[in-house]
Computed example of a mutant assay.
Amino acid sequence: MTIIVKIGGSLMRGTAPRRLLARLAGEQGVVVVPGGGALADQVRAVQPQWDLSDAAAHRMALLAMEQMAHAMADLESRLLPARTPAELAEAAAKGAALWFPAAMTLGHAGIPESWDITSDSLAVWLAAEMGADRLVLVKAPGAPFLAPSGDRTADIAAWSATGLADAAFATMAVRFTGDILAVPADDGDRLDAALRTGARATELNEEAKEGSRPS
């Protein structure tokens, strides 16, 4: 079973997420996708100052993700760097792969060069390309999590509408038929459940519903 785990960029703006990376590094079959974090924020800041096109900013933001992958590899040496589908499959078969996205994404005709596309959409794009079983979006505490309704299409559209995922996520997710889950980074139990290879989407959604109810 292959599980794509995207680490939200907001988790890369403060203290380095060493514990999260260490948790993921011990999982065989996981592919870690880095968010752009503070480095992508700098692209957003400089774009209007220099009057850069969205296409140029998109490419720069992809390279911000690439730089974050280098940072993550330095923070957790057990993550296995990979750049191509073959390298990702080989690394995930041994342990936890770390995606360096530039080689697969820069200039790709199927990826619009727009701020509508962030690491969320790129993660679901990669999940479809690899035929992964599940995509897990690890978000910062306080993100606008919604209890699953049981309607996958409606739930994913709501993620884009509320800002939990980027504007293009619902469109990009059409190609991916596996499970899609969003979990807060500070909820270890839900992350553990999302990484359980034998768990079914319905089971995990029920757990998410329980976790969203007030105590």
Rank of each mutant, 00 (worst) to 15 (best):
A71C: 14
A93H: 07
D74G: 14
V30T: 11
E76N: 10
A40P: 01
K94N: 05
V30E: 06
E27P: 00
A25T: 06
Q28N: 11
A69R: 12
Q67I: 00
A55K: 12
D41L: 01
A91Q: 06
L24N: 04
A61N: 10
H58V: 00
A71T: 15
S53A: 06
A69Y: 12
E27H: 12
A22I: 02
G36H: 06
S53C: 01
E66S: 02
V33E: 05
E27T: 02
A45K: 14
A92T: 08
A93N: 05
A38T: 14
R83A: 14
A92H: 07
L75K: 15
A61T: 11
E76I: 02
A92R: 10
M68Q: 15
V43T: 02
A56E: 11
A57M: 02
E76D: 12
G36F: 07
E90H: 10
M65T: 07
A93D: 12
W50Y: 14
D74I: 06
A86R: 13
A57R: 08
D74K: 15
E90M: 02
Q42W: 12
A55T: 07
V32W: 06
V30M: 04
L75E: 15
A22C: 01
S53G: 09
L63V: 02
R78Y: 08
A57P: 10
A22M: 04
E27R: 14
V32R: 08
W50N: 06
V46I: 08
T84N: 03
A64P: 00
H58Q: 05
A38M: 13
W50M: 14
E27V: 03
A93W: 05
A93T: 08
P48Q: 11
V30R: 08
L75N: 14
M68A: 14
A73H: 15
A56V: 00
H70A: 10
P48A: 10
L21S: 06
L88C: 03
A56I: 00
A45T: 08
M68D: 12
R44T: 01
A38P: 09
G37M: 03
R59G: 13
L39K: 03
M60R: 08
A92F: 04
L62R: 07
A82G: 07
M68R: 15
Q28E: 13
A73G: 15
E76V: 05
A25Q: 01
D54H: 13
L24Y: 06
V32S: 05
A38S: 13
A25C: 02
Q47H: 09
E66V: 00
P85V: 01
H70F: 13
V30Y: 06
L75T: 14
A73V: 09
R44N: 02
A57L: 02
L21H: 10
T84V: 04
